[in-house]
Design a protein around this nucleic acid. Structure first.
Length: 540
DNA sequence: AAAAAAT
């Protein structure tokens, strides 16, 4: 691309439903390939070609830890050299240092969207940021859903920028990154709903998600938002044993929107029950995971190919809060060449509204002590809590320990039966349970506004380096876990339980990666934890 | 080999 420093333009100020006073500045880069200059009341055009480059940061060496997670494991000392990805920074950002607003305007704690999004648009289509939902030419039924059902007032920042790109011809593919809890789901759900032709009774929008829970959640959001549109939808996740008619015997899917997990969608397609000829829009939620080598890459590409076979004009949307360099590079080659993209620098990705802490625990057992003696003591009144663990076994064991101690906690992990998973999530959503122990099955996307506290019982570790002497943290997963708190700008706190030098190094690598400071809590007294939660804004 | 999906 170009190596010139593109000029910057201030294109809009917006506010969010839950944060009425917030003001943000959005800078977009403009380059020679387009010269757009329309302006509306509170918005202006998004721009063209320019791009982003992100780099990773390293950190120090070794040690070993014993945890329940490791019990079933074998210690292999095969030292893997840290992943040195061949990153052709085909994209660059020279003059694109868009830190302008940082120094100018003080950050508001409850502002979920206070950082910059880099927009790179293809061709010369001018996009005007949407100041209101009315700007988007939505049907009255859909607008009503937004206002009445969803109780939205105005588009969030990512919505304001991405929706015009999604909705206006020529309906280019879009890769969009935005912060956790900033309203990505609304972007693609609204996109799907508004691109469906109500008169056509066939699948026209397809959304693929990494977990059953996310597919169900997204389906629920779509049904709520689309309540007045009459648009039909189907959730493609494995069904409960009993009332499930074998797919071979089922009638073809007529629903206009299908949201599901890769396996079931593949299955439906291979049984010719899910036709792709009328598809107009294909969405990958948590797209980086859906297209990652150790994720669902094969499934995703397979599905895309199946669609391409019968359909040449299906818009592809890729959404996630994280795109590491490797995935980002691959992903850009997966979609059509003239796609648009929105990216956030990784340093600006961690949520300022969620305060991060680390707690030193001498050993594995003391982690439980910290949880019950301190965090539970004061955490009960600050909302719901999710405790993340690394393995299914950890989930089971920690669950048992806490239940034996008399606490009411539940746990979820992929080995549970579907029904059981659904039940546990429902109980948590209904507020019947206060504390949920989870593997990374819920690390991404799970949206429960009452969750204010996240505990990393185990830090997330990259699987490939897990048994090396100096494992790498999984920074993406870390960010997603943290993002379970602080939904839509709410306040939150994370406690990372650190046990040994290995954990120390993981933690500091995470801090380096995001350029954030994780405050240490001295496990001395309940007062210290109270102070921490006060600082996080969760206690008075 | 983790977790995720699902055969």
């Amino acid at each position: 691309m170009d190596g010139k420093a593109p000029p910057l333009f201030l294109i809009g100020t917006l506010s969010l439903p839950s944060t009425p006073k917030s003001i943000f500045f959005l800078f977009l880069a403009m380059s020679e390939s387009s010269t757009t200059t329309t302006t509306t009341a509170a918005s202006a055009p998004a721009a063209s070609a320019a791009a982003s480059a992100v780099t990773d940061s390293p950190a120090p060496p070794q040690s070993v830890t014993k945890s329940w997670a490791d019990e079933a494991d074998e210690e292999t000392a095969a030292a893997t050299t840290s992943t040195a990805e061949t990153e052709t920074s085909s994209v660059k950002m020279d003059g694109l240092t868009i830190d302008g607003n940082k120094s100018n305007s003080p950050k508001l704690l409850d502002d979920p969207d206070d950082s910059n999004i880099q927009a790179v648009t293809s061709g010369d289509t001018p996009y005007t940021s949407a100041a209101t939902f009315e700007d988007l030419n939505l049907t009255p039924e859909l607008l009503k859903g937004l206002y009445v059902e969803m109780k939205f007032q105005k588009p969030s920042k990512i919505q304001a920028i991405s929706l015009p790109m999604i909705l206006s011809p020529p309906h280019r593919d879009l890769i969009a990154q935005a912060h956790n809890g900033s309203g990505k789901t609304t972007c693609f759900v609204l996109g799907m709903l508004s691109r469906v032709d109500p008169k056509v009774q066939a699948p026209q929008a397809l959304c693929i998600c990494p977990t059953r829970e996310l597919a169900i959640q997204n389906t629920e959001v779509l049904r709520k938002m689309g309540k007045y549109t009459g648009i039909s939808s189907e959730c493609a996740v494995p069904m409960d044993s009993r009332d499930a008619l074998p797919i071979a015997k089922r009638a073809p899917i007529m629903a206009q929107v299908v949201i599901g997990t890769p396996g079931t969608i593949k299955k439906w397609m291979s049984f010719k029950k899910l036709g792709a000829t009328r598809l107009r829009i294909l969405v990958f939620d948590e797209a980086d995971q859906m297209l990652a080598e150790d994720g669902f890459k094969d499934d995703s590409l397979r599905i895309m190919k199946e669609i391409e076979k019968v359909n040449s004009n299906c818009q592809v949307l890729l959404f996630s809060a994280t795109f590491n360099d490797t995935v980002k590079n691959f992903v850009s080659r997966t979609v059509k060449k003239d796609h648009n993209k929105l990216f956030v620098k990784k340093e600006e990705l961690s949520l300022d509204a969620v305060k991060q802490y680390k707690v030193h625990c001498p050993d594995e057992l003391s982690k439980i002590e910290v949880i019950k003696d301190y965090i539970f003591e004061i955490g009960e009144n600050v909302g719901q809590t999710i405790i993340f663990v690394r393995t299914r076994n950890s989930a089971k064991m920690l669950h048992k320990s806490l239940v034996d101690l008399g606490y009411e906690v539940t746990s979820i992990q992929g080995a549970l039966e579907h029904e059981e998973r659904d039940k546990i999530v429902k109980e948590f959503r209904d507020g019947l349970t206060q504390v949920l122990i989870s593997t990374d099955v819920l690390a991404r996307g799970f949206d429960q506004q009452q969750v204010n506290l996240v505990i990393n019982y185990d830090l997330p570790v990259k699987h490939t380096t897990q048994f090396t002497r100096d494992p790498e943290p999984d920074c993406e997963v870390y960010l997603h876990r943290v993002g379970r708190a602080g939904r839509f700008g709410r306040k939150g706190a994370v406690f990372n339980l650190i046990c040994d030098e290995r954990d120390e190094r993981l933690m500091s690598k995470i801090e380096n990666h995001f350029g954030t400071l994780v405050t240490e809590v001295r496990e001395k007294s309940v007062e210290d934890y109270k102070a921490a939660l006060k600082e996080a804004g969760l206690l008075l």
